[in-house]
Design a protein around this nucleic acid. Sequence first.
DNA 1: CACTACTGTTTCTCACTGCA
DNA 2: TGCAGTGAGAAACAGTAGTG
Length: 770
Amino acid sequence: MKLTKSLFMTGLKCDKLLWININKKEILPEQSLESKHNTEQGTKVGILATKTFPDGINLNGLGYRDNLIKTKEAIEQRKPIFEAGIEIEDCFARVDILNPANEDEWDIIEVKSGTKVEPHHIPDVAFQKQIVTKAGLKIRDCYLMHINNKYIKEGDINYNDLFAIENINEKVNQFLPQVEGEIARQLDVTKLGSMPKTVICEDCNKPYTCDFKKDCWSILPEENVTQIYYNKKLGFELLEQGITQIKDIPDGTPLKYRPAQQAIQIKCAKENIIHLDKEKVNEFLDTLEYPICYFDFETYAPAVPIYDGMNAYQRIPFQYSLHIEKDDDSVEHKSFLAKDSNDPRLDLLKQLVDDLGTDGSIVVYHKSFEIGVLNELAKAYPEFEEQVQSIIERIIDLEEPFAKFHYYNPRQNGSASIKYVLPALTDISYEGMGIGNGIEAYVNFARVTYNEATQKEKEQVWEDLEKYCAQDTWAEVEIIRKLAKLSNSPIELINNILPEKFQNPSVEQIEKFNSLIFFDFEKPTDEEIEERNAYATQFIKDSKRDLEDVKLQYDNKRFHSSSYYLQQAVEKITKAYGVIFFNLSKKYVENKMSHKTPKAFIKAVREPYMQELVALFKTAEPNLKTDVTELERTINEKETELAQTNREVIEKFLQLIDTLTIKLEEQNIPGLVKGLLHQLKEGIGEYDESFDWEKLTRVFDEKFKVELLMSFISLYLLSGITYGHVSNTRYSGQDIQPEDYKEGLGIVDCTPQIIPHVQKAIDALECFMK
DNA sequence: CACTACTGTTTCTCACTGCA
DNA sequence: TGCAGTGAGAAACAGTAGTG
């Protein structure tokens, strides 16, 4: 085994990766498409660089032995040598260009496909210098030859202008003394009997993302400190302290660069919530003007320019996708894709100007990219300058609300990239697509456009490209729609602090939760059932009376009283439902639930026999969250906020009841109710054998198919609307004073609309009880 | 590998002040 | 009058993000 230059560079970065490369190569994952492409580009550039030395000897492509032999011969001839192989006892290096200098000296020239000297180039060349010197050659200078990105192609490539060469001898000499020790250290590492343990640090990403990173990093928890937005360094510092989870970051840890966003990220992780600044998101949405053009470029940036007038690494826009949404919600799709190797830019630009028209917003994700490409186009075709500038002015960056964390979902893993935002916000996935990201797009484009490819191959790539690019802009449409929905949702008040994913509580948590809040499920005795029925009947009576009082007080403009009685009416009928349907005990209803009526529904939602009903709600309102722990928190902590709910939101709640009713009616209720009843029977029957199922079924079948179910949903929402008013209406010194109950307060304005809903629920239950 | 945007940090500039 | 110190604001810089 010999330590090669690339192994040496690997070893500088990571012992584990070095060890694997020597001892367990088979577990290395396949090179990523990106690094493959970069390697290929590097090789290509390396070959081109030799053209600046016309009399050089090319040893490229020779095997290890042959290369060594031919190198020795070539050294004798004192001509430039490409890929000169030099070995000393433990090490082997190939020098890109070994160039004779003076009498008996040589220069090392390392060729890189980049456009400048980077810090990691120095040890790379230093290793070569060390080996070559030890092998007996005199080295005069070390150079780095890289692409000159100022070079503009006109006609045939001028290789002398395409490349720039920099003397890096001094920097190399600075590093040189470390090389020998480092080589020895690395050789020791390779001989270790077992794999060195994983060290997660900045080096995993720098200068390139390690192909093995995915494996090493899989030991980190899902929401880990390396994902802190804008301060990865802090993440690695925390890792060193043994803190891996974002939620374990101690309060008071100094935040840098984007502290506001970082604070939101940490808060979301700690409380397991989604952050939504409804106002800011709405502000953003308000800037959009129809027709909204959702737009995306795909480009290819070759190191060596392909078309005249372009410089190195300049982007060639070869494709775009455009979804145009009009204010009637219709969406039209337009696209462009270059299908031959001619310069596509002018055709693309002409069609683009046509497709985008002159009105409406142009939505892109990360505007600097699209603006940059557009500016390059304008520069290449100055006759379009004005039109391009007006296009640029219409651009709106969809990244903004995410970069500013106006919306943040922990599933984004601290990223505002569309790659993370999209799955956090929608169900759209790139999985299973022929082309799933921008890199795959341009690599495949270049493959079938600038290399030999069969017609069949080309057509497949074109199809995949169209699909991919269209999906990218469609994703923008979906994100906007989702944002609009979230920030306008009537139940957003509850939702925006709930996590998206349903967290399954552990058994211990459930038990604890039960013991704190719920009646422990023992089969009720006959007396208890008797008692509950009596209790429920009493509640129905009380609720009816309270509802009458609502009307009286409201007519007399005694709004604090009407609001209070409204809450009481809802509370009592909810409690009646609770003891009849949710198996709540009198003890629970009296002591634990108190006026916090939504608790009755929390319990219901948690019950397995209610899951089908919950699923039904979700078909009507996918945003409906059912995480009980969080719901509980909302109820306890957001009481005042909920009490201050304005008219619009309450009206939307009430509309939601209607929407859900329609939805339920659409859903073939008899069949569903049967299934539901069956589950209900299994569930409650376990505790209460005496329950009158016949009657329940009959009632459902006859006239209360929808009403009882709807009462459940309706009371769920009504209890949320009203429960916050119980103390505010009666005691001064609260956040809302009794005298604050006047026209303009949501609950006051909506009381007339709420009354019929409560009445309906009372009627439905009363009828059932009979 | 390229590029640009953004933003917090650092550095610079400069007017102003108090004091010698 | 010169000089050091101050602080506000501008400009430059650095780091990180995103896109392909």
